[in-house]
Write a protein that binds this DNA or RNA. Structure first.
Lengths: 262, 262
DNA sequence: CGAATACTTGAGTGGGGTCAACGCAAGTGG
DNA sequence: CCACTTGCGTTGACCCCACTCAAGTATTCG
């Protein structure tokens, strides 16, 4: 699935990135795809975005991309794979704060605030593109609508974070997991990485636990429950939603907070 | 305490708002105070900010200021009192997502995204200033550094939200409440509303529960525990931290995520 | 001063955690 | 090609943190 989608993206006429950087084909393509429906961006804006300097970097599953306390000088664009942000409490427990699919910018916070207050890690093998802050700032000065687009990204990110907060505070384990699965499928669809209601789901049960505030053991039991109820098929790293209305009901899922274009 | 602080603020030379609006003295003063330490704002920027049109509105405790699903055309600046954002699940449980003190802008999301994905309510009697979106947008076009300041606000808001997520997912009830109290005192200090380590705390135990993902009954027991341990004195609507290191330890509180100026 | 609201306390319960094994598949090195 | 390792998923037994229900006591406010 992933490969097919990428092939389609790469087949589009892509403005090449700055010479000397980004020898791989158009790492900014997923971002431009994501911003296709963002209102107010002119063709010139999109051209400038596509010309941003990006240095592509392979990341290994489980490895950190940035750490709490760092002062980074570049933003991280997910090109391939799944990336997450997380924090570890003094007592050693990890809370995953967000997942990020190809086309999403993970680090925008660093552009305006000082030290990172959380870490960033790759959940799977993948590729990220690193974009220097100064290039982004320069672009923002040239093209004010790009600021809106970036700001918008941080607002949507915050909205998703709030939805997670609601889940952790007020939903049962079953509803939390169901909600998380719904969100993941919808966002995969939006990123062009799904086929109908199924997609790659390269997230272990431990990681699911760290995202949903549950133990890996309980995540396992809840997943069996959801499978048993005929709502999902989840095996290996592939997720298929068998009963979408049922799963959405179980997770109290309403996609409004994702602010996706119609 | 509140009255004293306000008196100090009002005593500063304040550029009057647009004539005809804001008959009360300088509702934008708390915002300018909050942004005193924001880097990059010129005197001209501050002048333009101070000249924003604001319509002051009294709000009653517990009443909604904006509702999920609304498409507002103005942003809400807290002038006096405490405001919160919240969501209610289909099963009727409420999750409070954030608290907002005077000087904070609550609604910036509406500037770039469509319908609100959560509601806004006043926790206490107070005053809010409503600023039309078009005025803010106009200001942003005139003064690019103001965009940075606003964007920065949403980033800090998101950082606070993430910290709450960590608490809900991975901290015990005791640590959650202790952390929340720490955060409230520090933010009150930053807003000039605290005296040393004590401040007004006009939040009921039910509301504390809705913010921390606990039942009001359990909040009560945890508060008694914290009182019994000699960490805080909390009665009526006044909070005094008696043992700051102890409370911070109990709540695993590290203020880095608030991104306050030194 | 009466009525609502907030706080407090107790008893009983359950959702989810912890601990400890075990199965299974995918490396990995000899 | 096989022994060893490592990580993930699965299962069972037990337990405790926090919830619910229910009643009673302070406060606050009109």
């Amino acid at each position: 699935v992933v490969e097919t989608a990428n092939a389609i993206q790469m087949a589009r006429p892509a403005r090449p990135a700055e010479p000397g950087r980004a020898s791989h084909p158009a790492p900014l393509q997923p971002l431009l795809r994501r911003w296709e429906a963002v209102p107010g961006l002119s063709e010139r804006d999109r051209g400038l975005i596509g010309a941003l300097p990006v240095s592509l970097r392979e990341v290994r599953a489980g490895h950190d991309i940035g750490r709490e306390g760092d002062r980074s000088s570049q933003c991280c664009l997910v090109v391939k794979g799944v990336v997450c942000r997380y924090r570890v409490t003094p007592s050693g427990k990890r809370q995953i704060l967000s997942f990020h699919l190809p086309g999403e910018l993970v680090d925008l916070q660093g552009l305006l605030l000082g030290a990172m207050d959380h870490s960033v890690a790759a959940l799977t093998r993948g590729e990220v593109g690193l974009i220097p802050h100064h290039a982004l700032r320069h672009l923002c000065a040239e093209a004010p609508r790009v600021v809106d687009a970036l700001w918008r990204e941080t607002l949507i990110d915050a909205a998703i974070g709030r939805e997670w907060t609601v889940g952790l505070g007020r939903r049962t384990a079953r509803a939390r997991i169901a909600h998380l699965l719904c969100e993941f499928v919808i966002r995969s669809q939006a990123a062009g990485l799904a086929e109908g209601r199924s997609c790659e789901f390269p997230i272990s049960q431990s990681e699911l636990g760290d995202a949903s505030g549950l133990s890996n053991v309980h995540v396992n039991r809840v997943l069996q429950d959801l499978r048993g109820a005929g709502l999902v098929a989840l095996s290996g790293s592939h997720l298929a939603v068998l009963d979408w209305p049922g799963l959405a009901r179980a997770g109290e899922f309403d996609p409004a907070y994702l602010h996706l274009p119609e």
